[in-house]
């Protein structure tokens, strides 16, 4: 009886919090980022590009520290182009460069992370801050960033998400071809390099957006968990994409609401909900196979 009263009190509190503008903004942006990341997450997982997201998120962290040192009014103005350029470089030089594949991703990833933290420590504008560790912690784990978005950030996120979703719908068939059999796609006249480039640029955009939601260290979770969970139950590309999108949106919305209700860090809570969802889908997949 007491437990029911506690739960109803929690929901009453949630209802009160949902009247706040910044909570609504967090939910809108969170859901859009989750949707975008899940759509391209399937492609990335199938192409064995899961770690590109991780590497680019560290690049975004490095760019964000430079933007902070430069005292830019909106960090995204620098973070976004730098991350896009690195995504293009990673993909373009991937086949011809002396340092190939996962080695170049790992190098850029740790390099950007290390340089970013170094800049934050030595730059006069940031090193004098007493809460430097807190700033870094917030950027890496996204403890509360999503709940402190300004209107401009929200509109930018909405605009970029719309572009990502429109591009995905328009290029769906070509992305499908490039994802499953790149050699066949090339043989049939499809410009696979161009579509890989489009994927890299879009992933960079998603990474930058997702930094606000879960922080740069946890971004890969948004890309990997929805796709892998959907693959436990469904087999066709279309059904995996749809299931992944629904899974990601539901987990993110639930994660934000749990975080708001119980005061837990937003990014970690979303990842925890994703893990629970993955376990549930794995169990569902096993049951489905046996039936």
């Amino acid at each position: 009886m007491i437990m029911i009263a506690d739960i109803s009190a929690d929901f009453a509190k949630l209802g009160e919090y949902l009247q706040r503008d910044f909570v609504i903004r967090a939910l809108v942006v969170g859901v859009l980022i989750a949707l975008c990341s899940s759509l391209f997450g399937v492609t990335l997982v199938l192409k064995r590009f899961s770690f590109i997201g991780d590497g680019l998120s560290h690049v975004a962290f490095g760019a964000m520290t430079i933007a902070t040192v430069m005292k830019l009014t909106n960090n995204m103005l620098l973070t976004l182009p730098v991350t896009v350029i690195c995504a293009v470089l990673l993909l373009r030089t991937g086949t011809n460069a002396k340092i190939k594949g996962d080695a170049s991703i790992a190098m850029i990833s740790v390099g950007a992370l290390g340089i970013g933290y170094l800049i934050m420590n030595i730059a006069p504008s940031t090193s004098s801050r007493t809460n430097l560790a807190g700033d870094v912690c917030s950027t890496l784990f996204g403890s509360t960033s999503i709940l402190t978005l300004k209107p401009f950030d929200v509109w930018l996120s909405v605009g970029l998400s719309a572009v990502v979703i429109v591009l995905f719908i328009l290029f769906y068939n070509r992305l499908f071809a490039v994802t499953f059999d790149e050699a066949f796609a090339r043989a049939s006249g499809l410009k696979a390099g161009l579509y890989n480039l489009i994927i890299a640029v879009i992933v960079a955009v998603i990474i930058v957006l997702a930094m606000n939601l879960v922080g740069s260290l946890l971004i890969s979770a948004l890309v990997i968990f929805p796709a892998l969970s959907a693959m436990r139950v469904f087999k066709s590309f279309r059904s995996v994409i749809i299931c992944s999108a629904v899974f990601s949106v539901a987990c993110t919305a639930l994660g934000i609401m749990v975080s708001v209700m119980y005061g837990t860090p937003v990014g970690s809570t979303i990842v925890a909900v994703d893990i629970v969802g993955f376990a549930a889908f794995t169990a569902a997949g096993l049951i489905k196979r046996r039936v």
């Binding site: 919090y17 706040r20 503008d21 910044f22 909570v23 403890s143 509360t144 709940l147 402190t148 300004k150 975080s259 708001v260 209700m261 119980y262 005061g263 837990t264 860090p265 937003v266």
Partner: peptide, 16 residues
């Protein structure tokens, strides 16, 4: 409010 909401609310009070 819980700690997450306090931080967010104060941050919004100062930014808007």
């Amino acid at each position: 409010m819980n700690s997450t909401m306090v931080y967010s609310e104060v941050s919004n009070m100062l930014s808007e």
